[in-house]
């Protein structure tokens, strides 16, 4: 794969350095079979260092996950080798079954079919809490 040219797919740019792998995991990019590149610690005039993820293929993209994991990123949608859309991702108010509560005292620890729902409680600090037990999500 030539990581500079994508025919149909997307580029997640301006990822805070070090978060690329976590976003890769949250987007479950390990489960797709098209070419994926993660560039870590790339130079950036604006950020000093940044991570970049490039995906060459039409795969569904969960923007909520990206907004939660790193609201500073930009997503470039590529079609026919051309940039057709540049998106900034707002932090979602709610995350459902994206992250999972790890508090052993939470009702979700015993009721397997409950949805794991987290709500944005502090936009400035990027804090999400479990709606059931209020445990803070850790990225």
């Amino acid at each position: 794969m030539n990581i500079d040219s994508i025919k149909d797919g997307f580029v997640i740019d301006h990822i805070t350095a070090g978060r690329g792998m976590r976003i890769y995991e949250l987007l479950e990019l390990d489960k797709i079979d098209c070419p994926v590149a993660i560039i870590m610690n790339a130079g950036s005039k604006k950020m000093g260092k940044k991570d970049i993820i490039k995906v060459d293929g039409n795969v569904p993209l969960n923007l909520e996950v990206i907004g939660y994991a790193d609201p500073k990123v930009t997503v470039n949608i590529i079609k026919d080798s051309k940039l057709c859309e540049k998106l900034t991702i707002p932090m979602p108010e709610t995350l459902t079954n994206v992250i999972f509560c790890k508090n052993p005292r939470c009702i979700t620890s015993v009721e397997q079919e409950l949805e794991h729902i987290f709500k944005l409680t502090d936009r400035d600090e990027n804090v999400y809490r479990c709606i059931y037990c209020e445990t803070k999500a850790s990225l």
């Binding site: 005292r105 009702i107 409950l114 059931y132």
Partner: peptide
């Protein structure tokens, strides 16, 4: 009353 946190919300 429930020993698990969040049960009444459910």
């Amino acid at each position: 009353r429930h020993p698990k946190e969040g049960a009444p919300l459910v």
